[in-house]
Nucleic acid binder design. Sequence first.
DNA 1: ATGGTAGTCGAACTA
Length: 270
Amino acid sequence: MKHFSIATWNINSVRLRLPLVLSLLEDQAPDILCLQETKCPNDLFPTKELKKRGYEHIEIHGQKGYHGVAIISKLPLESVSSIDFCEMGDTRHISAIARAGERAIRVHNFYVPAGGDEPNREINPKFAHKLDFLEEMKALHAEAEQDSGVSSILVGDLNIAPLETDVWSHKQLLKVVSHTPIETDGLNEVQARGAWVDLMRQHIPAEEKIFTWWSYRARDWDVSDRGRRLDHIWSSADLSPALSNVTVMREARGWERPSDHVPVFARFNF
DNA sequence: ATGGTAGTCGAACTA
């Protein structure tokens, strides 16, 4: 039996929260950690500190000030690439193939545009960008490299909460960006067309509420609990039978100077 | 219905 684990976390500045990242890696020791919103140019990424702790394989795609994604891995990474969705030059995607025992797995790490406040593509260019980004994601197939023996995992901040139980109030969020029908339908279509399995919902029944994000603006996030499930872990169908556990690390939202997103873990027994 | 907070980078932008 071979174990494999992967985590995803929108860190909202990797430099500001490097101590939290290091303690997470020490305590949980995932094979791979995918970060979003690193907000860090490539030449300033804290590569040395991560390598020192056994994460020797690091692939980053960052820019100054905004966005930015990174794959931090104990396992060797190869065939690294980024897709420039919507050809905006944004650093919102990176992927690489990891070798986990006998298996080869392409890991896609996404930071989907948030989409602004107004859920109307005619008046809000950010919402139009989000919908266009989703449209391009539909071309991404979980079995794209199956013929060469490569499975797929897709993780990241997808900025959409697809199910009614992925938000604190379905009714009150139907017109709020992240849970509008055009977005949830779009994400469902990305999943269906690409033959992706939602591993969080494979492990945690759809009747049960799950949140991975709580706004900084809520005065008491834990008590009011107005969260959303914006972060996701998907895989190709061949990996889903090997899933052993999914954990949403809710307590991370209560840490000192927290990210507004918490880490999500998927663990496999191959 | 509005405004509430956080981060980057040093005003205004994004979330």
